[in-house]
Amino acid sequence: MNPKGVLREEHGRIMKMLAVLQRFFATLADLKEVEAQDLGALMEFFEIYVDRYHHGKEEQLVFPALSRAQTTKIDSLISSLIDDHRQARMGMELLKFNVVTLPSCGEADRSEFCERAENYVDLLRRHIRKENSELLPLIEERLSETERLQMAGQFHDLEKVILGSGGLETFLASVHRLSLKYFPSRYDSIHFT
C-alpha cells in the first residue's frame, strides 16, 4: 500500500481507540480486573503504536522526505506537527502516572485522570485532522513514485524494528476487540483492516 494510504488507515485506528478511551472514562465506575486489562491495552496502544510507531514513522521518514522536497510552508507545518507529538507524549506520561494510582485513588484523582484523558483525546483528534488535510496530500503531490515506493519499504523495516514480529497483529486485534466491546452496535467486520 502507498504511504498515504498506510498513514490514513493508521489514523482511522487511532480515531477508533480515542473513542474507546473516551467511552472507557465516561462509563468507568469501578476498576475491576477486566477494566484494568482494557486500560493496560489502551495505554500500550497509545504509547507504542501511536507514539513510537506511528509518530516515529512520520518523524523519521515522512517529515524529512517532504522537507527535502522543499514544499512551500512545509517547515512550519512540520514544526507544529512535531509540537503536537511532543505534547501528546507529555500527556501520555501524565496519564501513565495516574494509571498506577487509579485502582486505589479517590474521586478527585479520578476526575483529574478523566480530564487529562479528555485533553489527550482532543489534542490527537485535532492533530489527525490537520495531518489528513495538510500533510497527507503532499505525499502524493510532492514525492515521486520511486520515493513513495522507497518510503513504503522503510515503513515496513521500521515496523519490524519497533513492533517486532507479530506486534502489529497484536495491536490490530486490540483495536478490533476494544472497538467491538465499547461500541457493540457500531462496528461490523468491514471496519477492521
Binding site: 489514523h11 480515531m15 477508533k16 483528534r125 489527525i128 489528513n132 497527507l136
Partner: peptide
C-alpha cells in the same frame, strides 16, 4: 463527529 478524521474520502 467524534470519529470523523477529515480525510475527505466520503
Amino acid at each position: 463527529y467524534s470519529l470523523c478524521m477529515g480525510d475527505q474520502n466520503c
